[in-house]
Simulated scan of single mutants.
Amino acid sequence: MRPLDLEGAWEIVPKVHADARGAFLEVYRPDRLAELTGRRFDILQGSLSRSARGVVRGVHFADVPPGQAKYVTCVQGAVLDVVVDIRTGSPTYGRWQAVRLDDTRCAALLIEEGLGHAFCALTDSASMLYLCSETYAPRREHVVQALDPALGIAWPVGEPVQSPRDAAAPTLAEARAEGLLPSYDVARKHTGRAR
Rank of each mutant, 00 (worst) to 15 (best):
M1F: 11
M1W: 09
R2Q: 15
D5Y: 10
E7I: 02
E7N: 04
G8F: 03
I12C: 06
K15Y: 10
D19V: 13
D19M: 12
A20L: 15
G22C: 10
F24K: 06
L25D: 07
E26F: 03
V27Q: 11
Y28C: 01
R32K: 15
L33I: 15
L33F: 14
T37M: 12
G38S: 11
L44V: 13
L44W: 12
L44G: 13
L44S: 14
Q45T: 07
G46N: 13
L48K: 04
L48W: 09
S49N: 13
S51M: 11
G54W: 10
G54N: 13
V55R: 08
R57H: 10
D63N: 09
D63K: 10
V64Q: 01
G67V: 03
A69V: 07
K70E: 10
K70L: 08
Y71D: 07
Q76D: 14
A78E: 12
V79T: 14
D81R: 07
D81G: 09
V82A: 06
V83T: 10
D85R: 06
I86D: 03
G89T: 07
P91C: 10
T92N: 11
Y93K: 01
Y93C: 03
Q97D: 10
A98T: 06
L101H: 00
D103V: 02
D103E: 12
D103M: 04
L109Q: 07
L110A: 03
E113W: 01
G114L: 01
G114Q: 00
L115I: 07
F119N: 03
C120S: 10
A121G: 09
A121Q: 04
A121E: 06
D124S: 14
A126R: 04
M128P: 00
M128L: 15
C132T: 12
C132D: 10
C132K: 05
S133R: 08
T135W: 07
T135V: 15
Y136L: 05
Y136G: 04
Y136E: 01
R140A: 11
R140D: 13
E141C: 03
E141N: 03
A146Y: 02
L147E: 08
D148S: 06
D148T: 04
D148Y: 02
P149L: 07
A150Q: 13
A150D: 15
L151A: 01
L151K: 00
I153V: 12
I153S: 00
A154C: 02
G158N: 10
G158V: 03
E159V: 12
E159N: 13
V161D: 08
D166A: 01
A169D: 01
A169W: 00
P170R: 10
T171P: 04
L172P: 00
L172V: 04
A173Q: 13
G179D: 05
P182K: 09
Y184S: 09
D185G: 08
A187N: 00
K189V: 05
K189P: 00
H190G: 01
A194C: 06
R195F: 12
